[in-house]
Design a protein around this nucleic acid. Structure first.
Lengths: 330, 330
DNA sequence: GCACTTTACACAAACGTTTGCAATGCCTTT
DNA sequence: AAAGGCATTGCAAACGTTTGTGTAAAGTGC
């Protein structure tokens, strides 16, 4: 139904090849006169290019796909913004797919819809791919890069913050304020990211000569409810004077539950969030955070995929952002 | 480089046509024996279908595109979840594009990347299309539907809440609690949605016999900063006892700024949010809200596109969700 | 006016599929 | 044994582009 290059050719009285060259603006391949004719015909027919067909013959595409693990993770937004901005600079288009939360079936669906189509490269935002899906991805021979997640067991390109440093610096920040009994809430220990954060935390505590009590580390999945659960586990008489939320959401969970348990924040209890997204500024008191540069991760992700040969694993910087949820102890 | 149907054909010793039929599992068109052979060959070569090529010949696609107006709007998530769920049920794939905030150039980019490719239909989440982009969309002849936005001037399919009712019921809720001086903060009056909310608000006030003071309506773009600005404009001695935030974000802006102005919420000031997303539960006090059923909008959106002939404009229900930010006046 | 280059275009193959049609061979039926 | 039916498969066209090659006409230099 839609007009094709052939319709234009017929209307303008030239060959399809010529139309293609005019529309692609291959200068030097057609006269002023035919250029005019073709463009007029195209406009008259309301021509829309069928890029899929073009990609079929050129065997290349200018779309990069971003697969994100959940609609709920709030840090995906700045990463995507970074991707969009940098993609724009390289004249690439971005499509986004949601892969659900650790649902390997949904992951597979998202993955195949992009693999089966001509996409130039794939960015995976914080998605922990099931083993069979990783093989699928690797077999596709499409360049890819993980963002905001790291691995130790497998050798794949990724860009993320130094999670060990995240844990270490968070803990150091609180130690410097005189805190000794410091909790770590909502962190998961199943994946590399969480393990690294815990390791950084432990190292900082050890250097300060403090023995970490087992109950100080409350595991979870970084969610709001994980933060709530952690705080309930600490209880009203935890003896803690500071808590690190393993994510912003976890920190908010800690904050709200601590309040309902009777803590005043930051007077009785300091809270330090990890991530530093928008949500830190929305709650009161605004949460101080070890902030990741998510935007930069997105930018670096598409750069890495545009300039192969670069080293495949990159670390983006983190920094402490002071807001209102920390207070010196004693 | 990647294996094609021809490679499989060669390896299995059959024709490409047969391979296609086996892989598409067209029963009755091939023998058990060749089925085995072909599948084995496909597996051996790690074959990945080129769906773009297939879509070229069949002239149809199973992907629906969702275009969202910004990475920042927090209600996009539940809509997308609804879309995904319903799309899955119809065996469709979903891709998401970001169109930026009222940036007609970015809109055009997003639009053309989907129009130029075989997509079955397009869902536009809360995006207010520039006139020329609407024409582009309409000329493409791809079925589309707007979500969470409505129009009066133009005749297009959309699914959203009844924004007049939103404004009316929000105001009624506060009136019933005995409030008289009620503000409306952060609403925009440039588009249909905002105008309707204001109209509903005015009607409810008028029915209660209250004259709306001009400064009670503070315009804005539904953002956190719009809420802040509105509350600063009201000031510490506003005379208001209740404020409707035009969105969750605006309501949070109002909340935080009110606090810093010395108001206690809800003791001195009741706040009612519009939207009812997750954020209402994260702040303290948790914000009561007139909640929209965003998930349902997503579901209805893909249903509408799967069953043409349905009426093109649909209203999803709203409801009051009581949390902790409202209090009886006097 | 000849050989040569340049310009401007048409032609056709190719990309990886799907699918209508034709062809083959076997099995029934009469 | 001829005719018809059916199961299985191959062949080739088609989808909408891009692009290398071929070629006629026009321009250039001597």
């Amino acid at each position: 139904m839609a007009a094709t290059i052939k319709d234009i050719a017929k209307l303008a009285g030239v060959s399809p090849g010529t139309v293609s060259r005019v529309l692609a603006n291959k200068v030097g391949f057609f006269s002023e006169h035919t250029g005019e004719k073709v463009r007029a015909a195209a406009a008259e027919l309301g021509y829309q290019k069928n890029t899929a067909a073009a990609e079929l013959v050129t065997q290349q595409s200018n779309v990069v796909a971003a697969i994100v693990n959940s609609t709920k993770t709030n840090f995906a937004s700045p990463i995507i913004e970074g991707i969009q901005a940098e993609a724009h600079r390289h004249d690439l288009n971005v499509i986004i797919l949601y892969a659900g939360d650790d649902d390997s079936e949904q992951q597979r669906r998202a993955l195949t819809t992009v693999i089966e189509r001509p996409v130039r490269s794939i960015l995976l935002l914080s998605v922990d791919l099931a083993a069979e899906n990783l093989t699928l991805l690797q077999n596709s021979r499409i360049p890819f890069c993980f963002l905001s997640i790291s691995f130790d067991e497998i050798q794949v390109p990724y860009i993320t913050s130094d999670d060990w440093q995240v844990g270490y610096q968070a803990t150091q920040t609180l130690l410097k304020l005189g805190h000794q009994n410091i909790g770590l809430a909502g962190v998961d220990s199943d994946f590399h990211t969480g393990r690294q954060r815990v390791a950084g935390y432990r190292q900082a505590m050890q250097e300060a000569g403090i023995t970490v009590q087992p109950e100080w580390i409350q595991l979870g999945n970084y969610s709001y409810t994980a933060g709530q659960a952690a705080m309930r586990a600490y209880g009203a008489n935890s003896g803690l004077t500071a808590i690190i939320g393993a994510s912003d959401m976890a920190a908010v969970g800690v904050l709200n539950t601590a309040r309902s348990l009777g803590y005043r924040v930051p007077t009785d209890l300091s809270i330090l969030a990890i991530d530093g997204t928008e949500i830190c500024e929305l709650v009161q008191p605004a949460l101080s955070s070890i902030s990741q540069n998510f935007y930069e991760m997105g930018v670096a992700g598409v750069q890495q995929l545009c300039a192969p040969g670069e080293l495949p694993q990159k670390i983006t910087p983190i920094k402490l952002v002071e807001r209102d949820s920390l207070q010196r102890n004693g």
